[in-house]
Simulated scan of single mutants.
Amino acid sequence: MGWMTDALQALTQGKDITVRPRGGSMRGVIEDNQPVTLAPVSPLEVRAGDVVFVRWKGGALLHLVKDATPERVLIGNALGRINGWARRSDVLGRVARIHPRTSGP
């Protein structure tokens, strides 16, 4: 299983999970393969500035919350891109900790 599948499984069971997400869209906040701990969160607690694990376009990814209304969150990446509005019910978890980078894979 990949990190997204593992995260989805743990979060839907109400458990925290540490994963190593891949990609560069969160560069400056979370680097490629940097460990982060995701925790379940009530979608109503999510605020602008949070990094969330959210269902988006048939998958689930880490996104930065740019803005929030009572019903939705505006998500994007750390490089300035705006992806769009997601329902709060699509928020599956929130980054609770960004671990220090270590050398190696």
Rank of each mutant, 00 (worst) to 15 (best):
G104A: 03
D90C: 14
E45K: 08
L74Q: 10
R87S: 11
D90A: 14
V19R: 12
G76I: 01
V52G: 04
V46G: 01
L8V: 11
T12R: 15
T37M: 08
V95Q: 10
L92D: 01
S25T: 02
L8P: 08
G24R: 12
H99I: 09
A68T: 13
A86Q: 07
K66A: 14
L92C: 07
A86D: 08
R101M: 09
S89A: 12
G59D: 11
P100D: 07
M26G: 00
K57R: 15
S103W: 14
G84Y: 03
L11K: 04
P43N: 07
G84D: 03
V65Q: 14
K66V: 13
A78P: 03
V73L: 13
D67S: 15
V95N: 01
P43Y: 04
I82Y: 06
P70H: 07
Q34Y: 00
I30M: 01
L79T: 02
V52D: 03
T102G: 15
L79R: 10
M4V: 15
V36P: 02
L74H: 09
L38M: 02
R81W: 00
F53W: 08
D50P: 05
A86G: 03
H99M: 09
A39P: 00
T69C: 06
A96D: 14
Q9E: 10
S103C: 05
L92E: 03
D67N: 15
V29M: 12
K66I: 08
L64N: 10
G84M: 01
A7K: 05
R97A: 15
S25G: 05
W56A: 10
L92F: 02
E45S: 09
R97T: 13
V41Q: 01
P35L: 04
T69L: 10
M4Q: 15
E71H: 15
V52K: 07
L61N: 15
G14W: 00
P70L: 14
P70R: 11
R55A: 11
L38E: 01
G58S: 10
I82M: 13
S103D: 09
R81F: 04
N33G: 13
V46D: 01
W3G: 06
R97G: 07
V41L: 08
V95A: 03
V46F: 02
A68N: 08
T18C: 04
V41S: 03
G93F: 04
H99N: 04
D16S: 11
H63N: 09
G28L: 03
S103N: 08
P35G: 06
L38V: 02
L11P: 07
V52Y: 02
N77W: 02
